[in-house]
Nucleic acid binder design. Structure first.
Lengths: 396, 396
DNA sequence: TTGAAAGCGCTAACAT
DNA sequence: ATGTTAGCGCTTTCAA
């Protein structure tokens, strides 16, 4: 006979965080009448040295209900799911007892039996910060609305964790996956398993531009348009020497924003000297660095369009320290519409990324794929960002 | 024979978001050799009007492996889980084929059979913002480290959603639950189901102070100490008329912070006139409101301790607009250590809530309960917050 | 309208 | 060291 402390082997154990959202209503079951199962009870010693007998907490099952009502499990199941061919009377009886016994359907079993988990997977680089929680929230709401569960994984920008998370999601039998790639991901073989299983995949925000095959459905932001709008706005305000802070150019978002910057300058008859473009891993510190550097030019800029809000803050601090007035002398526009852009002084104009809409759209695309299995991948959806003009760039 | 389009009834369907984190390693399976099941194949019409034949994507199962290797499913299962009593040779063979066939264990089935999902549930008011994502991240990391899955629900501060989420978590067969209550929650009957099932429960951050019974294990921040430290710091810097912005006093966090403020004043021989305490639903706007009001006093304050960072920003804006220098004339200290406190000018001193530590501790408490089923609830853990002194309150 | 029976994929007790 | 058997709780044919 096995000892009490025998724990199951953990080799396969996997670690996940599951974010759940309610929406679909099912009346909550309510109270009393424990039927005890025949399964063994456990005895355990509390830390005080006290011996406490535990009755194995029994969770009421459909079988229990069936027995109690003298019905078959199938009928009970049907009654509970609102199957039309069950008499109202029976449904009533079943529902009442279910309430009384606090019946809670075991979703694991249901999903296993049905062969579908009714769950969609989401893989993001982070769950902290501004952007991803907002997108996830959008996903949550839309999924909720359409009666789907959502599982989210975070890759921490690490390809290996991304691989594991994909595995986890597949093992959890998700019906579709939404992915925003880790910035380091260059090899996409871990998505083979997804394709092999026929699981629909939709990329959002961070996508693989050269990923071949049928799995390129995507929802992205039109970074080019956002940057273009920002720079066009600056030109319209009369700024003439517009600088640009760019993130690493191997990332499509920064490449596109850079191009939008260049195109807007060109279309407004402005020059785009190399010296006005500062490329770095953008954060507050590199923002100050970049601004200092720009201020040392023979002809310093009269505006900065930063590919990132944090760097914009850094730039503003340097400008203020050097006695430049914002926006009178120098204008600043950021990108992302982070919460703090409305809190600085002056408030920072920024390009909003439509986080919520992105999440919502990604879910919709996935559902479309889900409904038409085997159909061609959908053309990418490109969301138009919104320029929010605040104090830092408005001098007219 | 049922038609193609017959969809399952949705009455029970529930909506959730699942956040997963990897940590525990299991080598990822890799490539080739589809065995087709005998299950029916589906035909579907693509949107183009094209008829596409789909082979039902077959996911390799343990049974498949067993058949292919001429072993019993049990042996394969044991080999895969690293059971010691399986010969190395067999393990090798099994693992190899599993790789080749891209075997992915069905966690649903495993959890169902084992009777334990290896998952802990988390219920928070929001997943956006600063605090909760950080706490969740802490939870994620610790759970990950100890080989547990985590499911998170957001209640949107709504009791009804909180109820549903608790149901969802229970239906998902979680082994324990971490809860931060919705601010509107007054009735706790939805936690009865949790107690009834014997599922351990740990509250964090927002707790029920008067909730009776064995389910009061909790992890909270010592708000009183945080407020006390902030105000003591202000007194130490020579400020004498210290005002306080408080949130609604029916919430324990604000009540405790208010008390900490009062106690610190008393201990430093300072008076605490009613007129210096401004109570409101704290945000940037009410912060400006409160500050304007305070500035109109016959004897305006020379420092403000705000129970919330946003209101502190609002206060600073008003102060600057009125030509008061910060911190020379008036000091400001906030609470929460939001990211933007380091970005404003001047940067704002604030009380850090140890988000990460809170998540980590909550998981540890839960695991303790999990390991000692039936033992008494644990005494609440009180975390000491950390005062971060920044520019807004440092004049010495 | 209801019941009987089978089985989703996996694991574990009990053989061998 | 491996196989046999049974069953987690639910859904779903198929039959009555």
């Amino acid at each position: 006979m096995p000892g009490l402390a025998e724990l199951p082997d953990r080799t396969w154990q996997q670690c996940q965080i599951v974010l759940m959202f309610t929406a679909c209503a099912r009346p909550a079951p309510c109270l009393l009448l424990p039927i005890f199962s025949a399964r063994p009870t456990r005895a355990s010693t509390a830390s005080t040295g006290f011996l406490i007998r535990m009755k194995a907490p029994h969770r009421t099952s459909i079988t229990d209900l069936a027995r109690a009502l003298n019905l078959s499990p199938s009928t009970v199941s049907r009654a509970l799911t609102g199957h039309p061919q069950v008499s109202e009377a029976t449904k009533q009886r079943v529902r009442e007892l279910a309430e009384q016994l606090h019946f809670q359907p075991n979703q694991l079993a249901a999903a296993l039996r049905r062969g579908r988990s009714n769950t969609i997977g989401v893989l993001v680089p982070y769950i902290t910060g501004h952007f991803f929680p907002e997108v996830v929230n959008g996903i949550a709401i839309e999924a909720s609305r359409t009666g789907h569960n959502v599982m989210i994984c975070q890759s921490n920008e690490d390809v290996r964790q991304e691989q594991r998370n994909i595995e986890l999601l597949m093992n959890a039998q998700v019906e579709g996956i939404l992915v925003s790639l880790a910035s380091t991901t260059q090899d996409f073989s871990h998505f083979d398993a997804v394709r092999r299983a026929g699981t629909p995949l939709v990329f959002f925000d961070r996508i693989v531009e050269d990923m071949a095959g049928p799995y390129t459905s995507a929802v992205v932001l039109d970074d080019h348009a956002g940057a273009y709008a920002a720079v066009a706005h600056l030109a319209g305000q009369g700024y003439r020497r517009i600088a640009h802070f760019s993130g690493p150019l191997h990332l499509n978002i920064h490449r596109n924003r850079h191009q939008g910057y260049l195109d807007a300058l060109r279309d407004h008859g402005l020059s785009a000297p190399e010296e006005l473009v500062f490329v770095a891993d953008l954060n507050q510190e590199t923002g100050t660095l970049g601004m200092r550097q720009l201020l040392q030019l023979a002809e310093p800029p009269d505006a900065v369009f930063s590919s990132n809000d944090l760097a914009a803050v850094g730039a503003m601090q340097v400008l203020k320290a050097h006695g430049r007035r914002i926006p009178a002398d120098v204008a600043v526009v950021g990108f992302s519409n982070e919460a703090f852009t409305a809190l600085t002084e002056p408030t920072i104009s920024s390009v909003d990324q439509r986080c919520h809409l992105m999440g919502l759209t990604a879910v919709q695309q996935l559902l479309r794929l889900l409904e038409a299995p085997g159909s061609a991948p959908l053309p990418p959806v490109v969301l138009t960002p919104e320029l929010l003009v605040r104090a830092s760039s408005q001098r007219l």
